[in-house]
Each structure stands twice: as structure tokens, then as C-alpha cells.
Amino acid sequence: MSATPSASNSPTHTTPVGRRTSGKTSQIPPERKEAITALVSKVFTRLEAIFPRTFSSAFPTVDMLKLSRREVAQELARWPMLPTNQTIERALSEIKRTGNTWPPTIPELIAKLQPSAEDAGMPNSADAWREAVNHAHHPAEHCWRHEAVRLAGQAVGWWELTHTTAQSTWPRLERRFEKHYAALVNRVLAGEELQAQGLIGHEGSETRGAKAERASREAAQQQAEAAGMPHRMNPEQGMRSLRAALGGR
């Protein structure tokens, strides 16, 4: 007769804050643990006030409420940065604006509490994109709001940001920037400090083929400017300038 696994030796049993399911203890400083406990208590107290009629139905027993609070606390304990008061207020405001009459699920609540770029002192994606476009001509001379903005602009390409004339191309460049910037934001929120050398040597990080391609584009631009062609042209302007350069043929 085989023994039935107990909760104490099961590899998937529920564990309190500060412990992993593998059985290893993850030490949390007492002050951080207190901060997490206070944060979770505050959030659930506010949810009870927002949903007075359905809160008790969503969490029908004391044990269910404890388990739910513990799930949120365990997730917050994994985050390098805890939600700020601003983040909490924003999350609760978004929850109220949904018009739902029931409290959010635990996964929904955790997603709402996730810190944003602004919480880490970074501009939002739209502001970062505008800054990158506005200062792409002289990136080395600009004092960037955050290193991540310059890194994302560099990843898209300063040449592309200063020489693209086709309006249909700009949405694609913006999407590329947003993708790179979002990845950098996630790295910062995960506790990583972006190193300054990542900002240095855009040329040094290029492949030989990329350097040759960029040099060719810059040489062509210089030849065009020497021929009196404007810095930015639409296709019709380009054809007129080309015909003039060829003697009207």
C-alpha cells in the first residue's frame, strides 16, 4: 500500500511568502516583507470598499481571502521594484473605470499593479519616441531623459530617423522603437542598470557590412547635397533634381 503524498513533501504545494515551490527558502528582508504585507492589505481593503456587494462573494471564506492575498504577495516578492502609491492609485482607477461589478481576478490584479516606465523615472513610450526623433541628428550632444531612450533610438538607427522621407515608413520605425524601448524598460524594472558602454560606439558595434552600407548612404547623401538637392525630397522632387543634374534629359 503506497503512502499518499502529504502537503509537506509535495513539490507543488502552496508555500508562504519567502519560499519557493522547490522547498528552498528565499530570504526577504524584514522591511521589504512588511512593505509587501502593508501594500497587499491596502489594495484588498480598497477593493472591498469599491465592491461592497460582491467582495464577500468573490472571497467567501477567511481562508480564501488569505490565500488570495498570499498569491499577490508572493508575486510582488519576485519584483525588484514594488508598486508605488501612484501605481496603486492608477491600477484602482483603471479597475473602477471598467464598470465591472466584481473584483478583478488575481492575475488581472497583478497585471494592473505591474510598475510602468514612469515608476522607474523613465518617459512613456510616446514621449521617448518623440525625444528620439527630435534629437536623432545630434544624439551625442543631447542630454537624454534616460539611457534607454538613446539605446532604443540607436537600435532603430540614427540614419533612418534623420533620412527617412516616406511617410509610410514612419509607423514601422515607431513600432521598432517601441519594441526596443519596451525590452529596455523591462530590463530596468527587473533591476538591471543599463551600462554606459551600451551608448558608446554605435560604429564599433556594427558589422563590417553595416558600416559599408552606412558609409555608402552617407556618401550618396553628400553627393546629393553637393549637387544642390534638398536634404529631404519627395519622389517628384527627386525626379526633377535628377533630370536637372542630367542636363534636362
Score class of each variant (00 low, 15 high):
His138Tyr: 08
Ala58Ile: 04
Ile88Phe: 02
Lys96Leu: 09
Phe177Glu: 13
Leu39Gln: 13
Pro16Ile: 08
Pro83Val: 09
Ile50His: 06
Gly238Phe: 03
Thr45Tyr: 05
Ala136Asp: 03
Gln221Glu: 14
Ala3Thr: 14
Ser2Arg: 12
Lys211Met: 03
Pro171Arg: 05
Val156Tyr: 00
Leu161Pro: 05
Trp170His: 12
Leu92Asp: 11
Glu218Gly: 02
Pro29Trp: 07
Ile200Arg: 14
Arg208Ala: 14
Val17Ser: 07
Arg97Thr: 13
Thr165Arg: 02
Met81Gln: 12
Glu108Pro: 02
Pro107Phe: 01
Pro139Cys: 03
Asp63Met: 08
Ala224Ile: 06
Glu75Trp: 01
Gln197Asp: 15
Leu242Ile: 11
Trp170Arg: 11
Phe59Met: 07
Lys179Ile: 07
Gly121Ile: 04
Arg172Pro: 04
Glu34Cys: 08
Leu76Thr: 00
Thr105Leu: 13
Ala227Gln: 10
His142Tyr: 14
Ala7Arg: 14
Gln154Tyr: 01
Ala212Gly: 05
Ala132Met: 12
Ala155Gln: 13
Thr21Ala: 11
Glu225Gln: 12
Ser2Leu: 09
Glu236Tyr: 03
Gly191Asn: 08
Ala35Glu: 10
Pro139Ile: 01
Glu108Cys: 02
Ser22Val: 05
Ala155Asn: 09
His202Trp: 10
Asn234Leu: 05
Arg130Met: 11
Ser116Asn: 09
Glu131Cys: 03
Ile88Glu: 10
Ala166Glu: 14
His138Phe: 05
Ala244Asn: 15
